[in-house]
Simulated assay, not measured.
Amino acid sequence: MTKAKNTGLFILLIIQAALIVYLYRPGQGAPPPATLLFSGLRPETVTSFTITDNTGKTISLAKIKQAWIVGPDGYPGDNDKINNLVRRIAGLKSSRLVSRTRGSHSRLKVGDELFNRKIVLSGPDRKKVVTFFLGTAPSARTIYLRRAGEDDVYEVGGLSIWKLQTDKESWWQRKYVAVKNADLQSLTLTNHGKIISLQRDAKENWQLAGTPADRKLDRNRVTKLLNSVCRISISGYEGKNFAPQDKAIATITYKTRDKTFKLRIWPKNNKANEQVIKNSQSRFYARLEPYILQDTLELKKSDLLLKLKQPSTQPPAAAKKKGGPAPAQ
């Protein structure tokens, strides 16, 4: 009897061991493969983008002829930043399903009324393509997301509410002048009636108009000038109805292979420590910090020329006497 009982227990142990091996076999505890949350979203079809924060404030971005504009006034948008964000949303994946209950939406702040961010992407004719909500962040790299019309809540990475602000300044294009040096054919600076004009010659070398025959162009100084005026970033835009009270003190005229435009510059506002500029290609006046163009406005034509070699002030060395020194006595 005892022998039969022991045999039965032994068989039971073997069955339990086999069950444990089966349940905990390699790969059994691995999470399900990550899948796209917005599989039907094609970034190139998105033509508008709205963000609403938890206070109800909304910012609208719209794409017109492949260029993004910000808000109802149509400020230039940062195309790279916005396009990268749309592509990131289209590529969102999650392998972690946090909740499937509607009651969790308010707690996780992904509800229809209680949320941290509501994002709406639309296509042509304002037809909604994707709507979703972002809630609290369980970690520094992840955030809760719920697609509109669904109860499921996911934990995703790659998005942050701090990068989805509702102020227009966060989405402005700050590059106000962007010209490649190699494309520039001429540059003319008019400052208080004085003109500095640079032109490329047939060999693509820069020449300064009015250079004396005995002077040569300082190529390094010219390159420094071009770098400072061909890439100008601003601190902000003025309103669409803004008009400066003073007259412009300087104008820079750019001529490339396919276009010509001007940048007008106004006096520094000492109170605000800013300077107003206006690109003829833009609808908007802009503001920048005065130091950005300070060297350009103080530039003289002679600064672009190599310094003349000064004649030596030392007397010529005494000529040696013919025949060498006299023999010692």
Rank of each mutant, 00 (worst) to 15 (best):
L184N: 04
V153W: 02
T142Y: 03
V153Q: 03
L145E: 02
T142F: 05
A182P: 01
A140S: 14
K175W: 03
V177L: 08
I143G: 08
W172Q: 00
Q173W: 01
G135E: 03
W162H: 09
G158N: 07
D183M: 07
E169K: 13
T166A: 05
A178C: 03
T166E: 09
L184H: 08
L134H: 05
S170D: 10
I143Y: 04
T142Q: 13
A148H: 11
L164V: 10
W162V: 05
V177I: 15
G157Q: 12
E169S: 11
L145C: 03
Q165W: 02
D152Q: 15
W171P: 01
V156P: 12
L164I: 09
D151Q: 09
L159D: 12
G135V: 06
Y176E: 13
K175L: 10
L164Y: 12
W162M: 01
W171N: 02
N181E: 13
S160Q: 02
R174A: 10
Q185N: 15
L159F: 11
A178W: 06
V153M: 03
E169C: 01
F133S: 10
S139Q: 04
Y154C: 01
A140M: 12
E155F: 06
A148G: 00
G135T: 06
W171I: 05
I143A: 07
L145K: 03
A148P: 00
L145P: 00
Q173I: 00
K168A: 14
I143C: 05
P138N: 08
E155S: 13
V177T: 07
I143R: 05
G135S: 03
F133R: 12
S160T: 14
E150F: 08
I161A: 12
E169N: 08
A148W: 00
A148Q: 14
A182N: 14
S186T: 13
E150R: 11
Y154D: 02
V153D: 08
S160F: 07
K168M: 10
P138K: 06
W162P: 02
R174K: 12
W171M: 07
D183Q: 10
S160H: 07
V153P: 05
R146I: 03
F133N: 11
D152P: 01
D152W: 02
E155Y: 06
V177P: 11
W172N: 06
Q165F: 01
S170K: 09
Y154P: 04
R146V: 07
A140N: 13
